[in-house]
Design a protein around this nucleic acid. Structure first.
Length: 882
RNA sequence: GCGGGCGUGGUGAAAUGGUAGACACAAGCGACUUAAAAUCGCUAGGGCAUAGCCCGUGCGGGUUCAAGUCCCGCCGCCCGCACCA
């Protein structure tokens, strides 16, 4: 072996793995299976360090499991539909399909040099007709199963781009691209009935033991279960065919204090009033124009309009309560009507004060804290209050008991009905976009909405479309749009909406088990490979993608595309942190920030401090930025010119605009894939952010070079060389096996790597026989191989390993070698460490006590004081209490 | 407002209630070199009266023979959700 040259060995070993088809996933009933999956990428065209970290984590797991004897499935694909492709077509010309497939080719070419143990024969893109055709087939099955429906829904409509926008795409009430004022328009849209599964999606979270608690909580909050009551309020005079207004409340214990009703602008009564009264219509229109963005919601003033109508208070029928229209009431939640109890709800109180409405207490607090000024009276959940004047006989803590008791009280009198409600709403999947999966239905004047015949699938996107006009090009493509009705054969129109791209990513994990089948899944394959044993991705998908996938797996089970065991498709989930980087910022003459790329700055150590300088400025003081030699005069000059230094902002998310990006391809070119892989796995725990540093990457490369040199040195030793340290080194080896394995299995890759450093240092320092040194190096290669598979193969081969390291069985630690014969026990006196003794590991406690008390440091510290208590924790510690 | 998480050296971080700071980065010193880089070796939480002692895991209490770890109360930072009735 000579120099460590990753650019030579990495392609070679990748070729050898390919030739031996090492990573092809095979159904093998004789082996346990393991399915490891990383969230598949959007083909933007470039991979970034976040991808490297994500896929390396999965690869470490996949390679370890394979070595441990599992039949491993580790696939890769592309989440390929979506707006960026259309935007690129609109901005630069070209076609979304060409843009996407060319990006996929580029990214695949960037990923292959990483040496990931991926079964590339299973690769697919969601924009392959072979994939989305199966998705269309399932859509039709889901229609038949009653999981799909159409309804009119209010959406964000961009009148310039003529498309629906997601809430995130509306900025300050304007379309993010067109800058046009967004309208709230009612459109007929396709929905999945995810709300049918609200209760189950919530309760099943408890079974997801290997998911982060945080993600389960976020999903639970999103589903948003609430216990409350529906209360009908009788109108004093029936109007527009209505005799009552039904309100929903989660605080039925406050009903006594109801002093007004507020309904949403989209409530049927509000609509009826609008039609008759221009003032009401104007007010409702204003409510609808209010944006749905968070800022809009936070800053909007609570506005109301008195309808002049009134209802009877359910408990006190002789009292009437006015009905208002409120801009803060949502039609989408509850019944679209609320009763306001200003005494015990801050928002209601603000509204009541503004419009001079009554404030009536629903309960009395102990003491004299019952006067209400500008703050609503909201007692803590464990404060006992008196409801007696309201619900006869109740004196309870507010909170769960009060809510249940008041529901019982009202149900018994027929005043309301207890209800469990969920915040989760049905999933609107219609997008007025070209680059997505066409919804496979046809609109026929005679037959209505008709699903396509399965034999006509896939309904492929037409290629001959233009993006020179706003709107959906499918709408103006007559030969694609105009078809015969699948039922009656009459002239009909194809649905031109496409599906939300979250649909595509809701079942790709299942498709990987049989990626080229002519049905969505194949029973034997799904049965063997499902579930995903380890899923790895970003926390940003904690809610939508994971919730949709959990719903879709249930829908696929209902339509016979997945076995029952797969309704929770991801057994274990790991959410990894980001790769961050320092930002290098200076300011130009106009005070504007200027950012510098990492490769365009240089760091100098001056008096123990690190000073960062843009390379462009070094020439100003006569320094060649790439000359490694740095004289004292130069360092002095750098400190003298005060505005030479950049401001360093640490640990920032990599972003092109801040120029703090590191291209993985540059790292691979400079140091090799093993260095990139090792670095992103070292230092920080995987769930936390890791900061990429040039010095860290160089240090990793140096370490791998040292391992290489160590391997060369041992390779040149005479084979019959003997050493006295064999036993110590073998013990170190078994400890390393145990600790590295535990680190990998516990997703503590940083600790596994720390142990590998220790093991390498132990080998380098050992005076052992050549035979044992070579044996430990082979083990080192195996333990490194999940992180740095290429250098591991080279070491494995150089030290006489048989076959490929990637196919060698994972080493096992001998428990007998993990315990040392003698142990060093610290001795504490009153809890402070004062001395230590070495004793044989199995020495009886009584003898250890005796030895401890004979220790001269102990005697000195005790200074004759009597020992009150002596604690010996075998193999751990001794504590002397005086 | 509701829910969750985190505070340990110059930095990233370790630590089944049992020797706080493993491992690494940055830094400093030394060796080699005409010199630099590279490489190798050493030092390194703070303080002091430096063979030693005292202090030290955001702050204040508590439990325990023993607390970074457990409990109570604060402070600070981060994340998620939110006109949700």
């Amino acid at each position: 072996m000579s120099r460590y040259e990753p650019s030579v060995i990495e392609p070679k070993w990748q070729q050898d793995w390919d030739d031996a088809r090492v990573f092809e996933a095979r159904r093998d009933p004789a082996k346990p299976k393991y399915y490891v999956l990383e969230m598949f990428p959007y083909p933007s065209g470039r991979i970034h360090m976040g991808h490297v970290r994500n896929y390396t984590m999965g690869d470490v797991v996949a390679r370890t499991k394979a070595a441990q004897g599992y039949s491993v499935l580790h696939p890769m694909g592309w989440d390929a539909f979506g707006m960026p492709a259309e935007n690129a077509a609109m901005e630069r010309g070209g076609h979304p399909k060409d843009w996407t497939y060319s990006n996929i080719a580029d990214m695949r070419a960037q990923m292959k040099p990483l040496g990931l143990s991926i079964d590339w024969s299973r690769e697919f893109a969601t924009c392959d007709p072979e994939y989305y055709g199966q998705q269309q087939s399932m859509f039709i099955d889901m229609m038949a199963a009653g999981l799909v429906y159409r309804k009119a829904a209010v959406v964000n409509w961009d009148p310039v781009d003529m498309t629906v926008l997601a809430n995130e795409q509306v900025i300050d009430g304007r379309g993010w691209r067109s800058n046009a004022l967004v309208e709230r328009r009612e459109l007929t849209q396709w929905f999945f009935k995810i709300s049918d599964y609200s209760a189950e999606l919530l309760s099943a979270l408890d079974g997801l033991k290997d998911w982060p608690e945080k993600v389960r909580l976020m999903q639970a909050n999103w589903i948003g279960k609430s216990r409350g009551i529906e209360v009908p309020f009788a109108l004093t005079a029936p109007t527009h065919g209505l005799t009552e207004l039904v309100c929903y409340s989660t605080r039925p214990d406050t009903l006594r204090g109801a002093t007004f009703l507020a309904i949403a602008a989209d409530h049927p009564l509000a609509k009826a009033l609008s039609a008759a009264d221009p003032a009401v219509d104007a007010f409702c229109g204003e409510c609808r124009r209010l944006g749905t963005s968070e800022e809009a919601v936070e800053t909007a003033e609570k506005l109301g309009l008195d309808t002049g109508l009134s209802v009877r208070h359910p408990i006190y029928p002789d009292q009437t309560v006015p009905v208002w229209i409120g801009n803060f009431v949502l039609m989408e939640y509850g019944t679209g009507a609320i009763y306001g109890c200003p005494a015990h709800d801050q928002r209601d109180l603000d509204f009541a004060r503004k419009y001079d409405l009554d404030v009536v207490n629903a309960f009395t607090m102990p003491g004299d804290a019952n006067k209400i000024g500008d703050d609503a009276l909201v007692p803590a959940k464990d404060v006992t209050v008196d409801y007696d004047s309201h619900f006869t006989g109740l004196t309870l803590a507010t909170g769960y008991d009060a809510i249940e008791a008041s529901i019982d009280w009202m149900e018994a009198r027929g005043l309301g009905t207890g209800q469990i409600r969920y915040r989760l709403r049905d999933w609107g999947i219609s997008r007025q976009r070209y680059w997505g999966c066409p919804i496979p239905v046809v609109h026929c004047a005679a037959c209505g909405v008709v699903p396509e015949r399965k034999e006509n699938l896939p309904i492929e996107l037409p290629y001959d479309v233009s993006f020179d006009k706003p709107g959906n090009p499918l709408d103006r493509h007559p030969t694609w749009r105009d078809v015969a009705c699948p039922t009656c054969g009459a002239a009909a129109r194809r649905e031109t909406d496409t599906m939300d791209t979250f649909v595509d990513s809701s079942w790709y994990y299942a498709r990987f088990t049989a990626p080229h089948a002519t049905t969505p899944t194949v029973a034997e394959d799904a049965d063997y490979w499902m579930n995903v044993d380890q899923y790895i991705g970003g926390i940003e998908h904690a809610i939508l993608h994971l919730l949709y996938s959990r719903f879709f797996a249930r829908a696929m089970h209902k339509t016979c595309h997945l076995p029952l065991k797969a309704i929770e498709p991801f057994n274990a989930l790991f959410t990894q942190g980001m790769v961050t980087h320092e930002i290098y910022k200076t300011t130009d003459a106009n005070g504007r920030p200027v950012y510098h790329l990492p490769e365009d700055v240089r760091k100098f150590a001056i008096n123990g401090n690190v000073v960062t300088v843009p390379k462009s400025r070094l020439a100003d003081i006569g320094v060649d930025p790439d000359d490694p030699e740095v004289s004292q005069e130069v360092l002095d000059a750098i400190t003298l010119v005060s505005d030479l230094q950049v401001e360093v902002i640490p640990s920032a998310k990599m972003s092109k605009s801040k120029k703090n990006v590191v291209d993985p391809m540059n790292i691979i070119a400079a140091f090799g894939a093993d260095t990139a892989r090792w670095f992103v796995m070292s230092d920080s725990p995987p769930e936390r952010d890791v900061e990429w540093t040039a010095s860290g990457a160089e240090a990793t490369f140096k370490h791998l070079s040292r391992v290489w040199a160590l391997c060369s040195r041992i390779g040149e030793m005479p084979l019959d060389h003997k050493g006295e340290g064999d036993d110590d080194l073998l013990r170190a080896m078994h400890r390393a096996i145990a600790e590295v394995t535990a680190g990998i299995e516990g997703f503590a890759f940083n600790k596994a790597i720390a142990k590998l450093y220790e093991f390498t240092n132990a080998i380098a320092r050992a005076s052992a026989s050549t035979v044992v040194l070579k044996q430990t190096l082979r083990t080192l290669a195996q333990l490194m191989s999940p992180m740095t598979p290429h250098i591991a193969e080279s070491i494995w081969k150089a030290q006489g390993g048989a076959g490929l390291c990637a196919q060698a069985p994972w080493p096992k630690a001998d428990p007998a070698m993990l315990v040392d014969d003698t142990v060093t026990l610290p001795i504490q006196i009153n809890g402070k460490r004062r001395a230590e003794i070495s004793v044989p590991k199995d020495m009886p406690a009584a003898q250890v006590e005796k030895l401890a008390l004979q220790n001269e440091d102990v005697i000195r510290f005790l200074a004759g004081q009597p020992v009150k208590k002596l604690i010996v924790v075998p193999g751990r510690i001794i504590n002397v209490v005086v």
